[in-house]
Structures are given as C-alpha cells and as structure tokens.
Design a protein around this nucleic acid. Structure first.
Lengths: 147, 147
DNA sequence: TGTATTTATTTGATATATCAAATATATTTG
DNA sequence: CAAATATATTTGATATATCAAATAAATACA
C-alpha cells in the first residue's frame, strides 16, 4: 500500500502553521516581557477572565495534561507570577491567584498579543477564517468521536 | 487594551485540531505497531523516500530542533529501527539506514496512516482542503517573513 | 598553506509531554 | 455509618523542546 509522503498532507501544513505562529509569537513576547512563555501567558489570561479555574480546568483550556499543569504552575509560583492557596470548599484543589508581579505582566501582554494575531492574519479575510474554523471543527469532531 | 480570550481565536482552534489529530493517530498506531510514536513513524517514512537525508534535514522536515533530532535518532538506534554509519564524503554527518526491524514497522504503517487521514478528513471536500491550505500558507508566510 | 569561518552534530541545562501509579479528599452506595 | 468509588493533584520515569555552548570536520580566503 502506497501513501503520500507527509509533506503533501494537510496535517503537515496545520502543524507547520501553528509552529511558525508559536515561534513568531514567542519571539515578539520575549522582546517585550522577560521570562514568560506563550503558554504561561495563556494561563495568566485565562485566570484573569475566570479566576475560579482549577488546575485541571486550566489544563483542559490550554490542551495540556494535568501532570504538566502541576509543573507549569509550580514554576509560575516559583517565579512569583501566581500563588496557590487552599480552596475553602474542596480541599483537594487550590485557589490560584495572580500576584502583583503576574498582573504587571498581564498589563504588557495584550498589545503584543493583538499585534501578533494581526500580523499573522494579514491578508486573510473574516470569511476565510470562518471557513478554516468550520473545517477544523470537522477534523476535531472526526478525531474525537471516532475514538 | 482589551483582547479576545484565546478560545475565540483561530490559532486556538488550529492548535486543538492538530493535537486531537495527533492523539487520535497515536492511538490507532499504537493499536497496530508497538512502541513507535507518530514522529518516529514520520522519520521512517521520510528516510524511506529520501535515504540520503542528514539529521539536520530530517529535523527540518518534521519541524524539530537539531538537538531533539539527535536524541530521537539516538533512541531509534537504541530500539534498533535505525543504524548510523559514517558518511564517506562528509565526516561531520552520518548515513542513517533503516534496519530490518525498522522496515517491518514501515510495512505496517501505511494502512494505519491512510485510515487515520481518511477518518480525520471525513466529510471534508478536496476544495475545502485546498482552501485551508491556501490560508495556512498565508499564515506561514506572515509569520516567517515578518521575523 | 595556514587561519578564519561555516556547518553538522552533540551536550548540558531547563521546561514541557505523557503515562501510570500514588495521595488525599469528596461523594456515592449498601 | 462504613466501604467503595470518584475526583484533584502530585510524583516518577522517560521522551521531547529549546537555547546556548562545545566539538569536529569542511570550506573559504588571505
């Protein structure tokens, strides 16, 4: 059975696109904010919008494993972007709060992120983005329902 | 400055789509071939088509760092899927050959890979795939030229 | 030819990915 | 209520990601 080599397949291009975007975004972020990764920035953004999130919920939002999330948050606590405190209603989980240092980073992020998104999507119409999203949704559905 | 939260941005969906596909593909591959990852399979496929590839070239093809490639190939040599031998014309690099064990894996891969691709793309037309590729190309160009 | 520069690969350090097993607490059920 | 089950987080082991620096060989060039 003969198959196409990977370079000719759409998944190859999806992989490349997201990796190039991440590389580009990380570069721009590092120019403005020191010592923060794209994913750490995402975690801060999510926590700002939804302060009640548990580690597990954050992990799901950023597509990470719970074990990875433990370690990422460990690190962000060590870097003093976050603090953990015990949850009053459920002692298995934590409250995760953004520190002053974390908030300062959060102030610097939005303009960089906006610029990254705009630059990366230059020359692409709203309609095209909708098309892509619709098709990616189909892929997501196909991969998650045929488990 | 207020920005959209990540879930509402196309990059979030791209990331999710590729991760779900990888998870799905890995699951299917593991059912058929033991002890091989999607990326290791990709490396075997590329080497089969282009046996002269250097580590650096393979790394570029699968979007990895040279350092990662060294370690991945170390592992594949340890697992006896590949052997390294010195290159006659350039002693800095290696010839990388697929072993008999590696070839046996390569025989089992194509049907699984084809099935994965077909399943993941179910209900998506050729035309839609072309659209997605065209738009992803724009993103790739935007992120790589605006460095 | 000899030195400087470039190139392919490796190594070290640190972070993240993934799976399975362990802990501790909550919830369900007999 | 007690035992079984479920849930949130952690830990260990191993692989991969990323950057910078180190090695070793090839190439360019004075």
């Amino acid at each position: 059975m003969s198959i196409e080599i990977p370079t000719q397949v759409v998944f190859y291009k999806i992989e490349r696109a997201i990796k190039e975007y991440r590389k580009y975004a990380q570069k721009r972020i590092s120019e403005t904010v020191s010592d923060i990764t794209v994913d750490q920035g995402l975690i801060l953004l999510f926590l700002k919008h939804y302060p009640e999130l548990s580690q597990k919920e954050i992990a799901a939002l950023v597509f990470k494993d719970n074990a990875s999330m433990t370690r990422m948050i460990d690190l962000m606590v060590k870097k003093q972007y976050l603090v953990r405190s015990t949850h009053s209603e459920d002692r298995r989980r934590y409250n995760i709060e953004i520190t002053t240092k974390g908030k300062k980073i959060l102030e610097k992020l939005p303009p960089v992120i906006m610029k990254n998104r705009t630059t990366a999507l230059e020359g692409i119409t709203e309609e095209e983005i909708d098309q892509v999203e619709k098709i990616l949704d189909k892929i997501i559905t196909n991969c998650t329902t045929n488990q």
